[in-house]
């Protein structure tokens, strides 16, 4: 059979793709980065080992991990707060080691801890900050951001007079002054109420639509599941899993079915179902006229009912419980994933 695309055409497309990549470098490329600290007794602690990440334009990558996993160290290296012991970090093709200022010019950072700016008003801080990025007159952008984030009526207040939530929003405004193509959000909603959190995530979604690439760390896994296109799970300084959010949930979580029958189940032998379903059905048990099943996330309800030889007429009610990112996250930390770069 004749192939629909010739080898020459494949080579041409590959060549054009590599040209495209060199003309449009990735917002963030972290390659085999390591960070080691010497502790008081002289021994070495590997805070980050061989971490590699990539973010594409208009993509949100969630960097998730337990406390002390190395998330903040990775963020600190990208923001130049920590030096890079080994490896390379590039922001839009600019190396943080050799073209630091050009890389920083494309980067917006919302740090985990609030910066208080004791002496100045919001407007003054934003004006100074614009200047640090080489923008002398940035009043239009400042007013746009203040309005967008609901801070325009507070612009002449001292930063220290703002509430915690307002300070968070102010830090986002500060990070967006120079229209960066890459934003690092390090726990931006820590300690923020639900209403403000929701509005902040809406704003993050808008940024994604505008093509801004976002690296997000958060402990709110439900939000990460909703927002992030891909996640990278880090533990003890190593990336344990990296891939599309949907894939990680599919691969590492289980579904639960609760099927209420009109009468007690008398079909197939329940203990033999796991084998019969090639392992897709993990367990099934019967309690009065209800079936409780745990299956892998790839098995559909239809297939499950087929394995049990059940008809819709036999069923009174069905409840399903899908796996979520939290389950997948815990599975990764417990070492249940097979590959660190699964389903890229």
């Amino acid at each position: 059979m004749k192939p629909c695309i010739s080898p020459n055409r494949v080579a041409e497309i590959a060549c054009r793709f590599s040209e495209f990549k060199s003309v449009n470098p990735l917002p963030l490329k972290v390659e085999n980065v390591c960070k080691t600290y010497t502790v008081k007794n002289g021994s070495l602690v590997h805070a980050v080992k061989d971490v590699s990440l990539e973010i594409h334009p208009g993509e949100i990558l969630g960097l998730l991990g337990p406390n002390g996993a190395g998330k903040t160290t990775v963020i600190s290296m990208i923001t130049s707060l920590e030096s890079i012991d080994q490896g390379e970090i590039q922001v839009f093709g600019h190396s943080l080691k050799t073209a630091t200022l050009k890389a920083k010019q494309k980067l917006g950072v919302v740090p985990q801890e609030i910066v208080s700016h004791g002496f100045f008003s919001l407007k003054e801080v934003l004006t100074f900050h614009s200047g640090y990025y080489g923008i002398w007159n940035n009043q239009d952008r400042i007013q746009f951001l203040l309005k967008k984030l609901g801070l325009d009526s507070h612009q002449n207040k001292m930063v220290k007079q703002l509430s915690g939530g307002m300070k968070r929003r102010f830090m986002i405004a500060k990070a967006l002054l120079h229209k960066p193509g890459l934003i690092l959000l390090d726990e931006p909603t820590a300690g923020v109420d639900i209403q403000l959190r929701t509005s902040m995530w809406e704003f993050v979604k808008e940024l994604r639509k505008e093509g801004v690439a976002i690296l997000l760390t958060t402990h709110y896994l439900a939000e990460a599941e909703e927002l992030c296109d891909r996640v990278a799970i880090i533990d003890k300084g190593k990336i344990k899993f990296q891939g599309p959010t949907g894939n990680i949930i599919r691969e590492l979580t289980r579904k639960k079915f609760e099927v209420e029958l009109k009468s007690a189940y008398t079909g197939a032998d329940l203990s033999g179902l796991a084998k019969a379903s090639s392992g897709h059905i993990i367990s099934v048990e019967m309690k009065s006229n209800k079936l409780f099943a745990v299956v892998d996330s790839q098995l559909s309800l239809g297939d499950f009912l087929f394995h049990l030889n059940l008809q819709l007429a036999d069923i009174m009610d069905i409840k399903t419980q899908e796996g979520n990112l939290e389950d997948a996250f815990l599975a990764v930390l417990e070492g249940k994933n097979k590959s660190p770069q699964a389903a890229l």
Partner: peptide, 16 residues
């Protein structure tokens, strides 16, 4: 003072 308020980290992050 900047170390206390966190502004010093800000200076490190911007392209100065």
């Amino acid at each position: 003072t900047s170390k206390f308020t966190g502004e010093l980290e800000d200076l490190r992050v911007v392209p100065l």
